[in-house]
Amino acid sequence: MPEVDLRQQTVRDLNEALHRLSRQTNETDWQVLHPNGQHSLAVGIDAPVTVRIKGHVGYYCAGMNKDATVIIDGNAGVGCAENMMSGRVHVKGDVSQAAGATAQGGLLIVDGNASARCGISMKGADIVVKGNIGPMSAFMAQAGNLVVLGDAGEALGDSLYETRIFVRGAVKSLGADCVEKPMGEEEKAILSQVLELAGIADDVRPEAFRFYGSARRLYHFNVDHAEEY
């Protein structure tokens, strides 16, 4: 198994090695040691490999990931898995702000808590947070699913487009144009599928969640809603 020790090698060495991999590579299991909160680790991967990072990471870990599985045995900094296209990013600890920002595909799993703006402008990814999420999460979120097993902070789903938000715990407040909606069979099926993907379908029932979506009142400007702009 290829191993990169970031006490001996640089972030550049790591990313260069990962970028050199062809999609048919046999070197599919990578281990990264001593990340010590460094930024931009395992970014821009474009191959179906698994990278396990043993420790806490800084900003933008696994940014723009395609097809890779990145596992972080620790906490992740700002913008973890930002603009992910596909693949899977699993953070065993907490994530900082803007986790999964603008992510277009793939699955981000956070075992701990996510702080502010989780899933901001997300564009199609699935994000599963087992703990709580911070304020302004799913701000301007466009597509995909945000699933939260714990509680959500203030202004959830502000200026939401079509992302589906499922929260099992309490929601401190909803942002402009975000409303609770009845969970229909379609949403329940989608939620079940995401829980299944995240490997927690056996422990977590879809019925325990409440479903939030866009009221679509900001889709066309109306002077009587001006205070929400």
Binding site: H39, S40, G58, Y59, Y60, V78, M140
Partner: peptide, 27 residues
């Protein structure tokens, strides 16, 4: 009607911008 954001979703200010540029360079 599409409303575009005025701030980047995952960074603010020059200290973060330096890290963001670093990420784009790495990718």
């Amino acid at each position: 009607d599409q409303r575009s954001a005025c701030r980047h979703p995952d960074w603010t200010g020059p200290d973060d911008l330096e890290i963001k540029i670093g990420e784009l360079r790495e990718i």
